[in-house]
Each structure stands twice: as structure tokens, then as C-alpha cells.
């Protein structure tokens, strides 16, 4: 289902003055599920609709944030957001091998029998959702959202997220691993505006595999 349609959610104050020097607007998001509980790991993005609007290319050098390590037979991050063209590192910090793969259309790749200590990286140049798995450990799953915009944010445990972007028209997209499809709507961001947008989303049940207790790690029952 789609989130309640924005009736009067129009951020209009002043017409945005183009180019540098314009004061950016701030958009705050409050993402809740149907019971009102905060939704973590939701991704909100503003995709510029004005052709002239400059989109800064990501720096080739990876920041530490763009790293999805494997530790304790889990992905360290469940949800990661990057701008298209970003290189993401996948360091194996475990004591066992992994077999990272993605069958997603945005990027298909695999690191077959990937040894501990190895830190392979991939440049994600096509926008889309990349679902990461491990061919050895069925329960391992991670989502990488590759976006054609630098204006995005990820909700934390509070279910809140904030995006600061120059004034202009945008397509707002809201994504979550448990949302069947992104929620989309158009909006205009005015210069210096500070608005809040609340979402109530219906999530699918969490179908992640519950990891079986490791007999070596735990005690006998």
C-alpha cells in the first residue's frame, strides 16, 4: 500500500533562487509504522527534477561509511545508502570465508569463497537496490540503496531522518527492505525552508532467517 497521500504537503515559501548562495532547505522526516512505532533503516531521498540543478559527483575516494564489513557471520550494516558511482568496500573481518553475492539488476557480482582479511570493493554505478547475500551463510542479508542523488538520509532507531538540500523541485522516494516498492511523490523545497514530513508505512513481515545458534559459540541449550 502507499503511504497516505500528501494532501497539503506543499513546501512553498519563496521561489528558490538558483545557483550558489541560495540558503538550503531542511526536510525532517518522521517515519512510523501503522502502530505508530518508529521505523529504523528507512531510506529517504530527494531526486532533483530540475535538469539544471547540479548534482555533485561522489568523491572517488571511499569514506569509511561506505564499507559493509562481515563480522561474526553477519553483515555489519543491514541498510546502507550511497550515491551512484560510489565505491563500497566489503572487508571480511571474520575468521571464516564468505561468499558475497548479489543477483540484483543494479549490480550482479560475487566474491566467491572470500577469505578473512580480504577487503574487496565494488563501484556501484547504476542506481537501484542491491540485495547482498552470502552463499555460505543463508541468514546473511544486507541492502544497499544506490541513489542518483546526494540528498538522502537513513532513519535511525528514532525513526527520524533529516535531509538538507538546495531549493528546487524533487521527487521524494521512501524505501525500506520491508516495503514492496518505493513510495514516491514530488515536492518543492523553498529557500531556507524547514519542514517536517511524517510517514506512516505498512511494512511486510520480517522474513529474515533466524540464525541458528552456533554450537561452538553457545552452551548446550
Amino acid at each position: 500500500m502507499r503511504v497516505s497521500r500528501l494532501h497539503a504537503f506543499v513546501l512553498l515559501v519563496l521561489l528558490a533562487t538558483r545557483g550558489f548562495g541560495a540558503t538550503p532547505g531542511t526536510l525532517s522526516f518522521q517515519i512510523r509504522d501503522t502502530k505508530g512505532a518508529p521505523v529504523a533503516d528507512a531510506v529517504v531521498a530527494l531526486i532533483p527534477l530540475d535538469a539544471a540543478a547540479p548534482v555533485a559527483a561522489p568523491t572517488p575516494a571511499a569514506t569509511p561509511a561506505h564499507e559493509i564489513g562481515q563480522q561474526n557471520e553477519e553483515f555489519q550494516r543491514y541498510v546502507t545508502v550511497v550515491q551512484a558511482g560510489t565505491r563500497v568496500h566489503f572487508p571480511n573481518q571474520d575468521k571464516v570465508q564468505h561468499h558475497l553475492y548479489s543477483l540484483s539488476k543494479a549490480k550482479k557480482f560475487e566474491f566467491a569463497l572470500y577469505n578473512p582479511g580480504q577487503a574487496e570493493s565494488v563501484v556501484f554505478d547504476v542506481s537501484g537496490t542491491v540485495t547482498l547475500g552470502c552463499n555460505i551463510h543463508d541468514w546473511m542479508v544486507a541492502y544497499l540503496y544506490v541513489l542518483p542523488t546526494p540528498y538522502f538520509a537513513q532513519s535511525g532507531a528514532s525513526g527520524d531522518a533529516v535531509i538538507t538540500a538546495p531549493p528546487g523541485r524533487y521527487r521524494l522516494e521512501l524505501m525500506h527492505p520491508r516495503l514492496p516498492a518505493p513510495l514516491k511523490e514530488e515536492l518543492s523545497l523553498a529557500e531556507g525552508a524547514a519542514a517536517t514530513r511524517a510517514f506512516s508505512v505498512t511494512l511486510k513481515p520480517d522474513r529474515r532467517i533466524r540464525r541458528a545458534p552456533d554450537p561452538k559459540a553457545g552452551s548446550y541449550r
Binding site: V141, K204, R207, I209
Partner: peptide
């Protein structure tokens, strides 16, 4: 699934 719950 690739991986579960992603249907491939």
C-alpha cells in the same frame, strides 16, 4: 531467495 527474503 537471494538471499531470503529477496525473491530472485
Amino acid at each position: 531467495y537471494a538471499p531470503r527474503p529477496q525473491v530472485a
